[in-house]
Write a protein that binds this DNA or RNA. Structure first.
Lengths: 274, 274
DNA sequence: CCAATAGTGTCTGTGAGACAGTATGCT
DNA sequence: AGCATACTGTCTCACAGACACTATTGG
């Protein structure tokens, strides 16, 4: 797995404390947590207990909890990380977004009946109509320490290319996120959340290529990115290979922040993304 | 007022039929309905009865109603129009988004107690925490026929420049919409929803200027818009003024639709909008 | 003729994309 | 030296913005 996870091992929803009355009914958050590793985009998924389906990590909203805080909580509980890049992108409100998946609904009911502390009550609560607000987050995979919640037995990074079938409309939610991400690429210096502290230009380019799903021209990419002025050139990376050593770059935080403020209009819009 | 309104005069929520159990609790939709008239952007507002505040037209969500359908319903009930451009843009989920406006909350409770058919029950229901999904819509003002809902005494188009103080966080919702609209201007041929069937290039430019809140260069605007190829040139408009008659344009629907599909990357991003 | 506004053409600067040329690290 | 990869420079094309020029309408 992912190095050692030294964070609090007990940060998942604790079953005996799960009290329906603490949450507002009918509204949930689902998080598409995007990471990057081995030149692949991956997202964090949970797998339900008792042979249940794969799903996006999600959570309910506390009675006095801000919607965004609920998303942050999911993020923190699943990854162990605070303060990651998090952005709301869409609210999914079709009335049949759960119920039209009949077999899955039955499965969910059965599983949640066995897992919930309140048997039927929880099962009923969990199978009501839910409106769900989708958030997307960007993290460095190496820093995370995935933990399942009380409904799931696994919580893992899965490559976007091998995405399994997800519960309900979650595959569509992922699709929508990716479109959103590609557009956001034009407005946000997204790399800072997905790259390690120091990285080569090639690393960054591979990330952009993974997001845009098309190759970019090496020299033009470099010029374009450097012109934004948010990178700082550090030393060189000597790999031992028989070639010129690439520079290592890191993000200039001040510049980065002012760009998030003001927008950058960095554009790979040219070739239709939508 | 706005010509004669010949649509069904009875299309507002009917008080005696308003049954709380038909709606899901805690979630509402608010619509920022944008129109354009006399070279000004305007939005449709309602004013609560009994001296209550101005507010965005909103509505509750039926138990088996899609979220988007709820927004469409609000739109149709307030404007009399079906099938207008409608797009979800953000869900507002702060837990105190109503409650931190204490005086307003009291006012709302008092008013809804007098207006609701179920007295305290409705008042309590309406003053619970609400998460609200914001939709924005574009309409031609001349086609609309504003009607108040059962909570409001007025429903009017108000110029964005003279926007009154709105209830709760509604002013912020409007601000967010405008930013969204300016960005969308780069992706959508928005004019089609706000312009009359035939219009001059100057009309269209004025609209863009109203949205972007800055002057655009005449000749460049024309070239840029025409290059998109979604306009059809019709006849000339003879005004009787001592100058060259402008052409009248209309939207080419086929082209328009394919652009909405594929995205256009029409860009006034250059000068930071965000 | 002139005044006023509509529409077209041209020049400049910027930036994207293609690709050639130079630099560097290692054998 | 030679290879591989990193980096830089240059060329072309497209387009935005500025502005000059032509066209049309009516006095």
């Amino acid at each position: 797995m992912n190095k050692k996870c030294t964070t609090d091992p007990d940060r998942s929803y604790k079953q005996p404390e799960f009290d329906l009355d603490k949450y507002i009914p009918g509204h949930s958050v689902d998080c598409v947590i995007v990471g990057y590793e081995n030149q692949q985009l991956k997202i964090l998924l949970v797998k339900w207990k008792l042979g249940g389906p794969w799903a996006l990590p999600g959570g309910f909203v506390g009675r006095d909890q801000d919607l965004e805080a609920a998303a942050h909580q999911v993020l923190e509980e699943r990854t162990g990380l605070k303060s990651i890049f998090l952005q709301q992108f869409h609210t999914f409100g079709r009335s049949d977004r759960h119920s039209r998946f009949k077999e899955q609904m039955d499965q969910v009911k059965a599983i949640s009946q066995q897992l919930g502390t309140m048997d039927l009550k929880f099962s009923k609560w969990a199978s009501q109509r839910f409106i769900s607000t989708g958030y997307f987050a960007l993290t460095e995979i190496k820093k995370t320490c995935p933990k399942p919640d009380f409904l799931s037995e696994k919580c893992e990074w899965v490559s976007l290319e091998k995405l399994p079938e997800l519960i309900f409309d979650h595959n569509k939610i992922v699709d929508k996120t990716l479109k959103h991400l590609r557009i956001q690429l034009n407005f946000l210096p997204i790399g800072i959340s997905l790259m390690p502290h120091k990285f080569t230009m090639q690393d960054l380019q591979k990330l952009y290529e993974a997001i845009l799903q098309r190759p970019l021209e090496r020299s033009n990419f470099q010029r374009k990115i450097l012109k934004l002025g948010m990178l700082h050139r550090n030393g060189k990376l000597l790999t031992g290979a028989a070639n010129k050593a690439p520079y290592l770059y890191s993000f200039n935080l001040e510049k980065y922040n002012s760009m998030v403020e003001n927008g950058i209009g960095f554009s790979y819009l040219g070739d239709k993304i939508l």
